[in-house]
């Protein structure tokens, strides 16, 4: 779906956003961010909570001398943060593309 002149090299004008649609987009982005930050908080607080609740978590051995707790904190959480970040950034960008601007600007699918 493109305009009549898809090959044009004119970047066009700065198309302004309407205030009410920006408010809507910000609200939706806030929902997304709060949802993700809850997941983040639960995950990151679950580690110390499990440490206190389950002796097995820090006492047993998964890989050689490492306990599940050690593996999680030494590597697992970084991978989790990255995964969370990629998911959140992609979602935020797609939602932005769909809630603001005209349909031809809908963000390129990553």
């Amino acid at each position: 779906m493109a305009r009549q002149d898809p090959g044009s090299e004119d970047p066009g004008w700065l198309e302004a956003d309407g205030p009410s649609e920006v408010v809507a987009a910000a609200k939706t982005q806030r929902r997304i961010a709060i949802g993700y930050v809850l997941v983040f908080a639960i995950a990151i607080l679950a580690v110390p909570a499990v440490t206190v609740a389950l002796p097995w978590w820090s006492g047993s051995r998964l890989l050689g001398g490492m306990s599940p707790s050690f593996v999680t904190v030494a590597g697992g959480l970084y991978a989790f943060f990255l995964f969370l970040g990629v998911a959140a950034a992609r979602l935020a960008r797609r939602v932005e593309g769909q809630m603001l601007g005209t349909s031809e600007d809908e963000g390129p699918e990553p």
């Binding site: 302004a16 603001l100 601007g101």
Partner: peptide, 17 residues
């Protein structure tokens, strides 16, 4: 301020450029 802070007008324009 809200329109500038949460709007993507300038982003879209920059990407089109």
């Amino acid at each position: 301020v809200w329109t500038r802070m949460h709007g993507t007008a300038e982003d879209r324009w920059a990407e089109r450029v």
